[in-house]
Amino acid sequence: MTALLQVHELCLRYHGGPDVLLALSVEVRRGEVVALMGRSGAGKTTALRAVAALQQFDGGRIVVDGFALEPGPVPPESRLKPLRRRVGLVFQSHALFAHLTALENVALALTHVLERRREEAEGSARQLLDALEVGARAAALPSQLSGGEAQRVAIARALAPDPPLLLMDEPTAALDPARRGALGRTLRRLAAVDGPGVGRGLLIATHDVAFARACADRVAILAQGMVVEAGSPGDVLDRPSHWATRALLAEQAS
């Protein structure tokens, strides 16, 4: 079975600067949580942005559920509609719409992109917020939410159009250890909506080893512009073979 997301030898540089990504290859299957790990500056966020077509790339290929992105400038939005239905992205800063309530943030794409009726959209949005345990904060503005609440609203918003692939950028950055555990369980639940091979695929950029170990099916270590080591968390994180993995582990042990 072909993977939901296939990134093949992705090469990317910023405006004539040094290459950020040299030949990044990674796959995500349905029902699978993949942690893309690396130290800060390794290019994790850049890779996610390329998959979400927010960032042009210079070589390689990205295919999401049959929709292919080619090297070169980002195509106009009108040609990206199929991709937009397939990929959701949760930003590290959450990027909630500051002028809308939590509920409106989640419902906006349902009413204006999927053209659902308002009541129906708000019903779905409320269900999503409830499922992510922030239903009580539906009427709050983003500025009134805590970091954890804002993240859950952001996840609900990304999930609202029901994309098969969910990208998350450093989801544990603003969370305390207890909340990290809760988030890990939530993400596992999201991946396995309908059981393995049917549910969503999650690609999570993180440098949090404990979190990856707890919730990822597979981890891929990104260093020097490519995946230097990949496999189950047990294999990679307990028996690291690459220096970059060991450096990452050492950084967090201290």
Binding site: L54, S78, K81, R84, R85, V87, F97, R157, A160, P161
Partner: peptide, 17 residues
């Protein structure tokens, strides 16, 4: 903020929207 605009793009809104 740019990220809000990018978030809107990933949700499938057109530039006009």
């Amino acid at each position: 903020s740019r990220t809000q605009l990018e978030a809107a793009r990933t949700l499938g809104f057109s530039e006009r929207q």
